[in-house]
Design a binder for these strands. Sequence first.
DNA 1: CTCAAATGTAAGGTAATTGTAAGGCTGGGA
DNA 2: TCCCAGCCTTACAATTACCTTACATTTGAG
Lengths: 234, 234
Amino acid sequence: MSLEYLKKKRILLVDDEPELLKMVRSILEEEGYRQIETAQCVKEAAEKAESFSPELAVLDVMLPDGDGFELMEKLRKMGDYPVLFLTARGEDEDKFTGFGLGADDYIVKPFLPQELLFRIAAILRRTYKEEEPQVRLKCCTIDFSRAEVERGGERIPLTAKEYELLNALYRNAGRIVTIDALCEAAWGDNPYGYENSLMAHIRRIREKIEENPSRPVSLVTVKGLGYKLNVEGK
Amino acid sequence: MSLEYLKKKRILLVDDEPELLKMVRSILEEEGYRQIETAQCVKEAAEKAESFSPELAVLDVMLPDGDGFELMEKLRKMGDYPVLFLTARGEDEDKFTGFGLGADDYIVKPFLPQELLFRIAAILRRTYKEEEPQVRLKCCTIDFSRAEVERGGERIPLTAKEYELLNALYRNAGRIVTIDALCEAAWGDNPYGYENSLMAHIRRIREKIEENPSRPVSLVTVKGLGYKLNVEGK
DNA sequence: CTCAAATGTAAGGTAATTGTAAGGCTGGGA
DNA sequence: TCCCAGCCTTACAATTACCTTACATTTGAG
């Protein structure tokens, strides 16, 4: 059972004490985690999260410009990754607030390094069941980690927008994704007026992933409802 | 965010003290969990797991005929569901053994009921993403997230209007929905003058979901009142 | 700055979906 | 028995949502 891929996950640490931050970081790095970002307040954390797209967040409850709970709500709006809280001993109320809001684990300071590592590993293992770099489609495979499509030995690169759209479709593989949802995924805040542009992108994606782009089988349109990505295998 | 579906998950409790078993069971039942099995030793647990197919296991470390770690290895061979350990205070070595073997969480006795509930909910939430509701009818199933009807292995797509109408009927499954209400659902603002069109759509839907569209059993008409969708309840 | 690649826009085309209409049932009442 | 209302059924016409393509604009690397 190879768990190596878990070491590549992006982890965001947020704590106001630089000492603790440094300690936790070194614990994780020693264990082999390679992608770690840190922040010392809510504002900084939100900015880092935006560009870093963490796959796990470890948050202190007490922060100079707010609290960890408020921060978690912010983070949850951006992506659905697990959140683990650190807090001072004994504040049971905090613990319950955190769990109630949907935290994934809660560790009381002071803690044993080993326990932190185990809990992080347990959450990552559950959340990211197995590495799935290759998504198989009818007549090609998509490699999201390289943003490439492989078809008949040939490697075709995806552009940024194509990647975002395909990813949004893949996250809902098999289900219908509305035009609005796709615009939202690709253009964010102001996703209006791009319907036509979306269509052009869909066409370009189809030229990369379909045998016959005019008779799509993997990225099909459901008239009046949206688009749907069909992936192979259970 | 509906978390109701988590309450239906099958949970296996294993502990040698009948008292504790009873207590944990009542904590869970009070919270709304409905499918709970218990066992008092490794042997019994293995048997129950076989027939019960748990979706989460809560294990004590100390058992009369073995230990929880050994049991976890047995369970893992049968299925990949999360395991949470309960143990007596202070046995840090146990804790690390458990996590090292792939446990998902670890709670030290004595614990607060609330904490157990939160940790169980957190694990279930991460492990089991919300499932899509499949609506079962007399001779087919409807999958709204894919806008498809599955009948005898065949997948028949629904069009936008068909989707809207079926959805409106499903939201009032078993009850009569008036013609006006259906027009309202499908045509919004100005739902007048579409009665005939509605009929044509009803026909098309029946051809997709009924054995004999002319003798409907799932989407029946109630003369003078409207239509009604009969779903197979359980 | 320059150039190529990526992205957005526009316009004519097309086919599936939807609307329409006309004739056909069926069951209840007179 | 006949008639009528309310719904069914079908074929076909109209619409609209999407396709396709060429081209304009933006972006970003060097």
